[in-house]
Design a protein around this nucleic acid. Structure first.
Lengths: 297, 297
DNA sequence: TCGATCCATCACTCCAGACGATGGATCGTA
DNA sequence: TACGATCCATCGTCTGGAGTGATGGATCGA
C-alpha cells in the first residue's frame, strides 16, 4: 500500500495517456500489450483507484486517471531532474559550487555571469555566501566555498590562487547633513580626526587588522549595509567603494570629501580559489566568464 | 541508463542518509544489509556516480551523494503526493472539483470557504471558473464545473438544485462626472432614458434575455470589470451589485441614483449543482461551509 | 460479414533482487 | 594487545514478480 509505488508504473501510465491506448504504449515502451495491462492493473490495485474506463474498445481515462496522470508527470519530471543532476556529476561537473561574494564587490557583472552559468549548467547546485569583511576567505578555507570573489588588501596569501577582475576606487564620503560636508574643499587630515569614522571590522576576529583608520573615535560595523545606513544618517564619515555610493552622491544624500593628501589607492577585486582544491568544470567556466565580463564592464 | 531509475533505489538512498549506515537502513527497511549494499551499487552503476566514500568503517556520503540525496527527497516527496492524491480519491473524494463563480457574487466569503477547503483537502485539485453572464450555468452543464455560485434571475431551472446563500442588492449608479449625477434627487425614468445604459450580455447567446433594460440606447458588455471601467469613465449609467460599487461610492467616484420608483428587487445568490450529478464529499463540505459563511457574513 | 485492432486472461519463463553465510576492516574496551 | 561488536563487500541460492506469447471476446470500419 504505502511506498509500493514504482516509477515504472508511472512511466506506463503516462505512456498510455500519451499514446492513446495500451497497445500503443506497449509498442512505445517495447513491451507486449499484456505487460502493460498487468502493470495498469497492479497500479490500480495498489492505489485503490480505477484509472481507465474499459467500456469501449479503447479504454478512456477516468476523472481520477486524468488527475493522477498529471501527478505522475510531476513525479517523472522530478525523477528526470535527479538523473540530469547525476549525469552532470558523472560527466565531471562538480556536485555543487559554493561561491563566497564579498559585499564590497560590484554585483551587476557577477550576476550577469551567474545568469549565464545557470543557463549553461541548469542542474548545478549553487550556494552563494555574501557576508562581511573576512568572511569570503574564511568560507573558502572552511570548504563551504570553492570560489571567492573578494577585495584583497595587500598580497594574497601564497596558498590561494588569485585572478584580478577589476579595481574598486575608495571614496571618502559623508552625509550632506554632516558638518564635514560644509568644510571648504581640501579637508585636512586634522579636521577628519575631529569626527567619528565608521569602519568595517571582521566579525569573527575583531582584533584583526583594520585599514586606513584615521580618526581616534571609530564606530565598528560588521555589515556594509548597516554602515551605509549610519553614514546616510550623518553619524560619521568613512571611505566607501565608489560604485556603492555613486547613486547617493548623485542624489545629493552623500558628499565626497576632497582631502589634502593623495587619494587612497584603488583596491583590486580578485577571484580566488585554493591551490590544492581548484574549482571543477563549471567553476572554471565561471572564472573565465567573470574575467570577460569585468573586462568589458 | 536513461529511465532505469527506481523509486526503490531512492528510498534506499535516503534511508541510508537518514539512518547513518547501510546496516541501519537495512533494519529500517526490513531487508538484510547485503540487499542494501547491492541496491546502492546498482544505483551508483546506472547513474555513473560514486555516492559513498567507503574508506572508513561506515561509508560517508560524498559531495555528489549529498546533492543526490537532496534530489532524491524531492522525487520521493512528489511520489508521496501522488499516493496522497490517489488515497484521497480512493477514500471517496472527487478527483477534482470544478467551481464556476459568477463575477457578480461577493468573493470574500467564497475565498474564506475555499481557504478552509484547501486546508481540509490539501490534495484536492480545484478548478475555478470566473466568467461573465450565463457562463457559470454553462460550465455546470458542460461538466467543467460540479458546483456553481451564481446570481439567478427568476426561478432556477428544475434540473438544477439550488441553495440560496445571500441576496445581492442592485444599485443604479453613474459616475460623479456624468450629467445624471447633477440631476435633483428622485430621477424620473424618462430622464434615465435620455442616457446610455451599460448592460451585461451573455457572450455566447447575445440575443438571450437581458434584464431591466430602461434606456433605448444600450452599450453591451461581456465583462463586468470592463463595464465598471466605462461606468467610472462616465460613459453611461447602470445597476451594479452594491458590494462592488460601495468603495467607489465612498470615494465619491460613483453616485447612487435615487429613482422615483421602487428599487429593483434584491437578487439571490445560489450555490447550484445538477440533480443528476451531485458534488462529492469535498463539494458537499464546501456547500455546507458556504452556507455557514454567508449566514454569518 | 469479415478483417483489423483493442484489451483481459492465463500458462510459462526468466531474471532481478532478497536472503544468508562468510570474510576482511575498523573501533571501542578490557 | 587481544577480543568482541559492528560495519560493509562478495558470493551462491532461491523465489516472486514481471515480461512473453497465445488465446478469446468485443468493437469498429469497410
Amino acid at each position: 500500500m504505502i511506498g509500493s509505488l514504482t516509477l515504472d508504473q508511472l512511466r506506463v501510465l503516462v505512456a498510455i495517456a500519451d499514446s492513446g491506448s495500451f497497445s500503443a504504449a506497449g509498442r512505445q515502451l517495447r513491451r507486449v500489450q499484456s505487460a502493460i495491462s498487468q502493470t495498469v492493473q497492479g497500479l490500480e490495485e495498489t492505489q485503490g483507484v480505477v484509472l481507465f474506463d474499459r467500456a469501449g474498445r479503447i479504454p478512456r481515462l477516468t476523472d481520477a486517471g486524468r488527475i493522477l496522470v498529471r501527478e505522475a508527470r510531476l513525479v517523472l519530471e522530478q525523477a528526470r531532474e535527479f538523473e540530469a543532476v547525476a549525469e552532470g556529476i558523472a560527466s565531471g561537473l562538480e556536485p555543487e559550487l559554493g561561491i563566497a561574494l564579498d559585499g564590497m564587490c560590484p554585483t551587476p557583472p557577477v550576476m550577469a555571469s551567474l545568469q549565464r552559468l545557470r543557463a549553461l549548467y541548469p542542474t548545478l547546485a549553487v550556494s552563494l555566501f555574501t557576508e562581511g569583511l573576512g568572511a569570503a576567505e574564511r568560507r573558502l578555507r572552511s570548504g563551504d566555498a570553492r570560489l571567492a570573489i573578494t577585495l584583497v588588501i595587500g598580497q594574497p596569501p601564497s596558498d590561494l590562487q588569485a585572478l584580478e577582475l577589476i579595481e574598486v576606487t575608495l571614496v571618502p564620503v559623508v552625509a550632506a547633513s554632516h558638518p564635514l560636508a560644509a568644510e571648504p574643499a581640501p579637508v585636512p587630515r586634522a579636521k577628519l580626526r575631529e569626527h567619528v569614522q565608521l569602519v568595517l571590522t571582521d566579525p569573527v576576529d575583531p582584533s584583526g587588522p583594520s585599514y586606513s583608520i584615521v580618526s581616534p573615535t571609530v564606530w565598528r560595523f560588521v555589515d556594509l549595509g548597516r554602515r551605509l545606513d549610519f553614514l546616510l544618517a550623518g553619524f560619521g564619515w568613512c571611505t566607501m567603494p565608489g560604485h556603492l555610493v555613486a547613486p547617493h552622491i548623485a542624489s545629493g544624500a552623500l558628499k565626497p570629501l576632497v582631502l589634502d593628501e593623495p587619494p587612497p589607492p584603488a583596491l583590486p577585486v580578485y577571484a580566488v580559489f585554493e591551490r590544492g582544491r581548484p574549482p571543477g568544470r563549471a567553476g572554471r567556466w565561471l572564472l573565465e566568464d567573470l574575467a570577460k565580463e569585468f573586462a568589458s564592464a
